[in-house]
Design a protein around this nucleic acid. Sequence first.
DNA 1: CGTATTGTTATATA
DNA 2: TTATATAACAATAC
Length: 264
Amino acid sequence: MPELGDVDGFKRVLAEHAAGYPIRHVMVSDASVLHETAVATFEETLHGDAFGPPWRHGKWLIAPMERNGSAAAPAVLFHFGMTGELQWAEDGQPRHRHDRIIFGFDDGALCYRDMRKLKGLRLTDTDEVLSLLADLGPDAARITKSDFTERLSGLAKQVKSTLTDQESIAGLGNLMADEICWRARIHPRQRLNTLSDSAVRRLHTKMGSVVRSASRAGCVPGRPSWLTGHRDDDPGQCPRCGADLEHGRVNGRGTVWCPQCQPG
DNA sequence: CGTATTGTTATATA
DNA sequence: TTATATAACAATAC
C-alpha cells in the first residue's frame, strides 16, 4: 500500500488519535521491525511521553516526541515498506495477526501492522532524521514546477524509473508513477531527454493532481476512471480511449499503460 | 511446484 | 560513470 498518499493517511491516524496523549504502554511483539533500536530503550523512552505533531517526507513518517522540544529530541521514524500500515484500534477490538508494535493509550491503541516486514520503525533524534532524509529529493507534494523541470529535464533515464527514484523526487511509488504517466500521455519507458519542455511540465501538473487525490483519500484511488482501477484487469480497457491496456515490466516492476494514449 | 505483490538495496552487467 | 537488470528480503495469495 504505502506510497505518499497512504503515508499521509497514516499521519492523520497518528495526529487524530495519538498525538498529545500519554502513551500508557508500548508492546513490541516482533522486534524484527525495530531497526537499530533496543527494545528496552524504545519502550523506556516512549512510555509516559506523548507524540507531537507528525510530519511526512516522501514515504517516511516522522513522529517527534512532545516532552523534549529541543533540537535533539527523540523521534520515531516510520517506513512502511510494501505492506506496512498504521491503524487505530478502539479498546476491545481484537488484535490483528500482523500487529508488530502497539502503542497503548487510555482509549485505544495505535498499531504498526505489517505483513511482510520489509521496513519498520526506529528511534532516533532530530539530527539523525535530517541526515536520514538528506539523500531524498524534494517531496512530490511540494516540489515546484521549476524545481521539477530543472531536476528532470535532459536526464537520459526512463520517465517511470525517475519518478519512482526517491533521490530524484520523494514519495511516488509504482502505482502513482503509472497513473501519472498515463495522465500525461507519456510512455513509462520514454527517456526524459526525448521529452519536450511542455511534456515535462505536463508531468508535473499531472503528478500534482494524482498526489492531491491520493493524499486526500489516504491511498491511490482505484476508481474506474483511473488507470489504477484497471491494473488487475486482463488486459483491461483504457478508461480514456477504450483501447486494450498493455502490461509489462518497467524498472523491474509490473507496469500498465495504454498503447494508444502513450505511444513510445 | 509455479506465479504475483503499492519498497528498498546490493550486486552484476553493459 | 551511468543506466539498467536481477535477486533478495518476508509473508502471503492464486
